[in-house]
Design a protein around this nucleic acid. Structure first.
Length: 237
DNA sequence: ACTATTTGACCTAC
DNA sequence: GTAGGTCAAATAGT
């Protein structure tokens, strides 16, 4: 049983791409035994330039493929200065077949391929609901509102602004629901346990709270614009 | 031409 | 031996 961690649930507005505030590149996808949908693997785009070893796995849940389990591994070692370089980095990087060559950064193990060793430390886990256009399960009748549940906290400083896309089998989702952009908005709260028994104060922010955080227009509010300390202060009283 | 994504193969952990 | 994680070539998209 993992130690209990703080969990955050914040309602989000979804448009076209999932943006959790970090910059990811997909490096693989795999069918997992006992699950209906394949798992997608992402790593920080700063792996090459900054040796950032953060990765995450994204997988639709069996119960509802519109809910994505997002599991984060490792910590971001890239800093905020990298944010503005993201687009340039992406556009200037070598082709996919060559950018995955041997790591050059200090901190990456050189003696054997680090990529083939399993990581053990789960930093935090997220669930993202991505619904179809017809889904009335959306919140408050707003087809663009979704729930995001965060377990644990970021320990790194980067909250990059790049979008990253999450895809799942075409057979299980229409083209309009293959990716989503997360934008925070407001809600009221409760407490619940997740499937791993991690409890927590599942808190929600009110619209006023969100506006107080500087988000302004909900539609245009981007994840990186949030001050998580301020969110914590609101959630925890 | 370049970038992004897919997918089979390979490697390691269990 | 099997399942999961990653690599990297192939393919698709822009």
């Amino acid at each position: 049983m993992p130690s209990r961690e703080t969990l955050r649930r914040i309602r989000v507005k979804v448009s076209s791409t999932v943006d959790d505030g970090f910059s990811w590149v997909k490096y693989g996808q795999k069918d997992i035994l006992g699950t209906m949908y394949p798992r997608s693997y992402f790593r920080c785009i700063h792996r090459q330039t900054k040796g950032c070893l953060a990765t995450k796995q994204v997988q639709p849940t069996d119960d509802d493929h519109q809910i994505l389990d997002v599991i984060y591994y490792g910590e971001h070692t890239c800093d905020q200065s990298a944010r503005s370089d993201d687009r340039q980095l992406k556009s200037s990087r070598p082709a996919a077949s060559s950018n995955l060559q041997e790591p050059q950064q200090p901190g990456l193990e050189q003696s054997r391929p680090a990529a083939k060793r399993r990581r053990k430390t789960v930093r935090w886990k997220t669930q993202v609901r991505v619904s179809s256009v017809q889904d009335i399960q959306r919140r408050d009748g707003d087809p663009l509102l979704f729930d995001v549940v965060y377990h644990g906290d970021h320990t790194c400083s980067e909250r990059a602004s790049l979008n990253e896309q999450v895809t799942w089998p075409r057979s299980s989702a229409s083209s309009t629901e293959q990716s989503s952009t997360i934008t925070y908005t407001a809600a009221a709260g409760s407490v619940e346990d997740d499937e791993e028994g991690v409890t927590s104060a599942t808190n929600f922010l009110s619209m006023d709270d969100m506006l107080d955080l500087g988000g302004g227009d909900v539609i245009d509010m981007a994840f990186p614009s949030f001050d998580f300390d301020a969110i914590d202060a609101l959630l925890l009283g």
